[in-house]
């Protein structure tokens, strides 16, 4: 947490707004429903969304470079399906996990390669990846497969008791460790800083001698890895594989990033942000569940609306920056004189 030294006010605005929203939502929930304000309800946010925290954090890296990864949800579904079917055949749980991670890494690396090597739009490649992931999952099976493997069920049901009576699952530990690792990578490694540089200005990054190609490929590979890890954690959570799992979750991940202050135009954002974003959407879900009469579809609609609000907020900030940064605009104009006809 020490890594998060306050640097930019316009950056902090979003993440502060997110924290405020978090408190407000939680406060509103606690006021309206008895039993909402309990340790376990709060911890359940982590338990229920551990996979999403991991996936959104991976997505954050991609968005910071100025790209996007739409394939995450289908990769999670694919991994759930791959693990479930491999486990059904009696394969060792840890081998399955390794295979899952490898699948995710290969998937992401392939996408990154296509994007970098052929200068394709990230979204068209990952959109195809989204269909590819679901397609492979469908091929493995259209029915849900229940995971009965002992290791998986054990991990799934293992409760880590905390002081104060609450408990968390192993998945939560994995997710939190992952977030800490991501923050460290983002702040203290050459790769992490290259990701930010790339999002700031691709041209400058090239001219400053950064390897833009490798960073691009690495960042999509990382996202693929995160989706796979998220897939494993999700399989712990659901104990089933289904090709239809998590339809539309890519928006939840993007929403978590946007709400968590990752600028969609790239270059800005704290890697702890997506976790706050996930908590926000998690609370909304919890409130709707506590409310009882509203259909679960309201969750999607409210999250969509929230996503829209934060996008508009980002837009405002970017516009203000552009207005304030006239000086840089002029240099850019001078720069254009360089272009030869």
């Amino acid at each position: 947490m020490k890594a998060l030294r306050i640097r930019v006010s316009s950056n902090n605005i979003i993440i502060l707004a997110t924290l405020l929203l978090l408190v407000l939502l939680y406060g509103a929930g606690s006021m309206m429903y008895t039993g909402f304000f309990s340790m376990q309800v709060f911890l359940n946010l982590f338990i229920d969304n551990a996979y999403l925290i991991i996936v959104a954090t991976g997505m954050a890296f991609v968005i910071i470079t100025g790209g996007i990864d739409l394939s995450v949800a289908s990769v999670v579904a694919l991994i759930s399906m791959v693990s479930a079917s491999l486990l059904e055949q009696g394969m060792n749980a840890y081998v399955v996990m390794s295979i899952s991670l490898l699948v995710g890494i290969a998937f992401g690396a392939g996408q990154g390669y296509l994007i970098h090597r052929f200068q394709l739009h990230p979204w068209i490649v990952t959109l195809a990846g989204m269909f590819l992931g679901r397609g492979i999952a469908y091929l493995i099976g259209t029915e849900s497969i229940v995971v009965k493997n002992e290791t998986y069920t054990k991990i799934s049901s293992y409760k880590i008791n905390l002081f104060g009576g609450g408990f968390i699952s192993i998945s939560v530990v994995i997710a939190l460790l992952f977030v800490i690792l991501a923050i460290l990578v983002g702040r203290y490694t050459g790769f992490g800083r290259a990701v930010y540089a790339l999002g700031g200005s691709e041209r400058s990054s090239v001219l400053m001698g950064l390897s833009v190609g490798n960073t691009t490929i690495a960042v999509y590979t990382l996202s693929g890895f995160c989706s796979a890890l998220g897939g494993i954690v999700f399989t712990f959570y659901m104990l089933s594989g289904n090709s239809l799992h998590l339809m539309g979750m890519e928006m939840d991940a993007i929403a978590a990033c946007v709400i968590g202050g990752i600028l969609l135009t790239g270059g800005f954002g704290y890697l702890i942000g997506p976790m706050f974003g996930v908590l926000c959407t998690g609370i909304i879900q919890t409130i709707i569940i506590f409310q009882g009469t509203l259909s679960s579809w309201w969750t999607k609609i409210v999250i969509g609306f929230l996503l829209f609000l934060f996008m508009a907020l980002q837009r405002l900030i970017v516009m203000r920056k552009e207005k304030g940064g006239n000086a840089t605009q002029i240099t850019r104009k001078i720069a254009k004189n360089n272009v030869k006809m």
Binding site: W123, L127, L264, S295, W297, W298, K300, I301, G304, A312
Partner: peptide, 30 residues
């Protein structure tokens, strides 16, 4: 979203991609 707020078309229409099914669910009441 695209022309006035200047959001990338992909992300802008992604909102409706997922929310849209929710809206449809509300109309059909599930």
């Amino acid at each position: 979203l695209v022309s006035i707020l200047g959001i990338q078309p992909m992300v802008a229409t992604l909102i409706l991609l997922t929310v849209g099914r929710g809206i449809a669910q509300l109309i059909t009441n599930g």
